[in-house]
Design a protein around this nucleic acid. Structure first.
Lengths: 184, 184, 184, 184
DNA sequence: CATGAATGAGGCTTCATTCAT
DNA sequence: AATGAATGAAGCCTCATTCAT
């Protein structure tokens, strides 16, 4: 109602991105039309071009602004160091899984956008590194037995990601228990 | 050159599927044009329609005829039963990994075809079941310690698949070693 | 120039229908291309699809909106009852003939649209009934001798229509004189 | 079986024309494809081009070789002169009507082929002249009262033709009775 | 800021026609 | 004589994008 010009502009931009994410995730970037996005945002196609230079620019904006890695990093920043490694690890993976679930649309976009291969790979690498760093810290601290932490990180990340992606969610505690049977 | 009509028809069909797979994997199904496929096959677009009813039909044919699960099942059919479980498991996963590597294009197609979600889910489920069955057999035979074989199958499958998918191949023996440290 | 949006839309729609009727009548529905219609309307082909869902929809719209029966019925609605039957009949047929002449394009469309057989048959039936009703009224009123009014209506209608259709227009007064020699 | 080369060629040509007539009448010339015709003739498309230079040539051949006016003229050639005019006229019109019924496909072709306007007009004119000549002869012979025979011919022809065309066949005796009430 | 009419490029598909076999 | 694989030219339609209002 009483939004300043600039507030309104920001709000509209977000609204358009929301709509675009929804539509792109649903139909794929190529499968979705600008008109689809406009309708999802309850707006006319022409308006999109006041906020984004092109359809492609919308995709790029989504990929860069809506990436969820930042949120994972935030999580990491909080100290969880005093509790058992497997407990924290389970929580970390659950946070990651929840992130994926909450961002199913974004994931679909990542997987579908042919052009988006690079951002996706980055995300995978970063995610694996995040988990790997955590594991190595805990091995160093003696909380976990020495093991191939890089491989473990890849395994954990992949398992959570792929099962979330294809609609077969898993019991993360069981996953952690599988890799760290003695620790639990 | 000197092919019979019927041979030529079969050959041409395969050639077109090859070209289509290559192009779809490269640009995504929606991003690729029928003209692209035709050019990749060194043929005019019209000809595609003597062999396939539509672009969509090409995708479906690729998904059903070129699925690689059949090949995995073949592998499974051969007896590998006399050797240590972890050795055979490593081989199974390597076979799977090689299959993915050899079929990078097919994988890309699976991941990109927005409408092809169902075949992909099937493939994931079947693959996990294949590995899970193997693990359970070996647990029953006392070759592996009792453990959550379903989860293990999911883990192994996911790890191999996702890392192959995003260009970060892994050391499969290390993966097996991670899950079955005592057995090796 | 200074038309409101809504006026413009109505005007454009009519303009497109005008062009379509002209072109379809000239080349036949199947023989005419969407591009032909667009060029006749001095517009790009894409625009047609803002106003009509398909080429076929254009044909259907023409058939239903531009049918001329409504105009005949208007004529009939006016009272012509006080004058001699043959005089009024002649006028009615002349009105009909004029309608056909004025709508040569529409007639051509009616005759050519293979799929549009139903509207055409309807038009024929309605036209015959209109004339037949008139004749029976006048027979009942004693203005015309008793005779097979249904057959007479068919005869009159057919004669006017077919001769107008194939470019051999006739003297309608002579036609009426042929069927009602004593009355004139 | 034992056809000479030349017999076979003639036979095949007729077979193709039969098929073409059937298909063109059903779908319209533009709506029918060469493949449609070939399939109707149980033959491959390529073969058509050994017998006709083009699809258009098939249409033209049908229009010129399969016109039914020749058959009407044959009928006329036989003497029917000793019997009452209305009786013979009824028979003539019935023969004409039957011809139209028997050649529904040809009629459909005549009406649909946009290019076939000229042959159709010719047919109409010839038919009207044939009937008109008959009427004038009988008027001259005193069998019919003096009247506008040209107009009568047009009327009779049109009525039979249009009603046959649009699936509303009529009682021809009643038609004749309408125009020649006293004579019957 | 917002609309939606209009464009132009290009996509999928069909089809008359040719030609090697 | 007959086939059917292959072509090339369109045809219908969609859609990202622009722009006058």
């Amino acid at each position: 109602m009483s939004r300043t010009r600039s507030e309104q502009a920001v709000w509209r931009r977000e609204q358009l991105l929301d709509a675009a994410l929804r539509v792109f995730a649903d139909k794929g970037v190529d499968g979705a039309t600008v008109k689809d996005v406009a309708q999802a945002a309850d707006v006319t196609p022409g308006l999109l071009y006041r906020y984004f230079a092109s359809k492609e620019a919308m995709v790029e904006t989504l990929l860069s602004e809506r990436g969820f890695l930042p949120r994972l990093l935030e999580w990491r920043a909080q100290g969880h160091d005093t509790r058992p490694a497997t407990e924290v690890l389970t929580e970390l993976l659950e946070a990651f899984d929840r992130l994926l679930a909450d961002n199913a649309e974004l994931m679909a976009l990542f997987f579908s956008a042919a052009q988006a291969r690079a951002p996706l790979a980055t995300m995978v690498n970063e995610g694996q590194r995040l988990i790997g760093d955590f594991l190595r810290d805990r091995v160093d601290a003696g909380d976990l037995r020495p093991h191939d932490t890089v491989m473990a990180a890849k395994t954990l990340f992949a398992t959570v990601a792929i099962n979330r992606r294809f609609g077969t969610p898993i019991d993360i505690a069981a996953l952690v228990g599988l890799l760290y049977p003695e620790e639990g």
